[in-house]
């Protein structure tokens, strides 16, 4: 993957997490071992190109955002619902902002609702063009995959 794509994903992730949740995002320091991500969500886009954006992230990051914004809930079911809501909205913001960073502000895209992947495994890539970045979010490991296919040259 080119450095430009890696930097664009890092920049967009930093903007999304810092502006909406006051959390810092850094490039992954290969020397350190970070707690692995245990939540995953994905969403697709259709328009000037088709594709998919997926994100894996640690539950403790989601809990931090829930705690800061929505407040933790003692009911495990409600707490899981809040984690998933945060996961989907962070991915939604990541996807929308990545599309603008990648394709500019003219094309119109239709976005699918984000879906939580129960297995927490990153989906297998289905596109020829796949950009995959590992990030350090609040000292935990996070993973973003940006897949692009059927790009229209209009």
């Amino acid at each position: 993957m080119s450095d430009n794509y890696e930097q664009a994903i890092l920049d967009v992730a930093s903007h999304v997490f810092e502006t909406s949740a006051f959390l810092s995002v850094y490039p992954l320091d290969e020397g350190g071992e970070l707690p692995p991500p245990d939540f995953c969500a994905t969403m697709t886009f259709r328009g000037a190109a088709d594709g998919r954006v997926s994100m894996r992230i640690a539950g403790e990051v989601l809990d931090t955002i829930v705690d800061n914004v929505l407040e933790m809930d003692s009911d495990p079911e409600e707490q899981m619902k809040r984690r998933n809501d945060v996961l989907k909205e962070m991915l939604n913001m990541l996807c929308g902002n990545l599309l603008t960073a990648h394709f500019g502000s003219n094309p119109v895209f239709n976005l699918s609702p984000p879906e939580v992947i129960e297995s927490a495994e990153m989906p297998a890539p289905t596109s020829a063009e796949v950009h995959h970045v590992l990030l350090n979010i609040e000292h935990t490991l996070a993973e973003v995959m940006f897949e692009v296919q059927n790009q229209k040259n209009s």
Partner: peptide, 26 residues
């Protein structure tokens, strides 16, 4: 919205939308 398409925003303005705030917002 997270969407940043100026084309879509122009369409929304024609339909009477008064403004647009991009997520994430300050």
């Amino acid at each position: 919205s997270t969407e940043g398409s100026e084309t879509r925003m122009e369409e929304l303005r024609r339909n009477g939308v008064q403004g647009y705030i991009r997520k994430p917002f300050a």
